[in-house]
Structure formats: C-alpha cells, structure tokens
C-alpha cells in the first residue's frame, strides 16, 4: 500500500465514520486516484494524509489547535495544484 492508497483509504474512512464532508472529500479522492500526476509531490501528499486522518470540523475551536479543519485541507489542495 503506497501513500496514495493510504490517502484514499483514510478519506473513505473519514467520509463513512468521521465528519469529512463530501464536497471536501471529492477533491482529495481526485488527488489520491491520480498518482501519476502527483507522484513527485510526496511531501504534500503526506501532509494531506495527516490532515484527513485528523480532520475535525471544530479544529479551530478552543485554545489549542491539535486537529485540522476544512481550511487546512483546502490550503494543501491549493498548494498541490500550484506546484
């Protein structure tokens, strides 16, 4: 299982069992299923994987930010497209 498989699996898991919304999961799955396009961006894929695994709708609430929200994932997706 490579990093793209892990990303797809984590995204599907968060869709089924977590709070990850479909509108956010779709572009992530698009990345996960296009390994040829993103193969040389492993660092960003790893970052995205961490954010998906630890996705929390209310990550910005409270005094400490230990999870990741939709803005973090959107920012990583933007970075992936820009580079």
């Amino acid at each position: 299982m490579d990093i793209f498989d892990e990303l797809e699996e984590a995204t599907n898991y968060q869709l089924a069992h977590g709070d990850l919304p479909v509108w956010l999961a779709e572009p992530v799955l698009e990345v996960a299923r296009n390994r040829d396009k993103y193969r040389d961006k492993e660092y960003l894929i790893e970052l995205l994987l961490m954010q998906v695994r630890e996705y929390d709708t209310y990550a910005e609430a409270g005094c400490c930010k230990w999870a990741f929200d939709w803005e973090d994932i959107k920012r990583s997706l933007k970075k992936l497209l820009e580079e």
Partner: peptide
C-alpha cells in the same frame, strides 16, 4: 499561507 504552511510542516 507562509506561516500556516510552516505550521503544518511542524505538526507533520
């Protein structure tokens, strides 16, 4: 975005 990305790198 500069600071946020650095912060993400640290958390990663």
């Amino acid at each position: 975005d500069f600071g946020t990305f650095a912060r993400m790198a640290v958390e990663k």
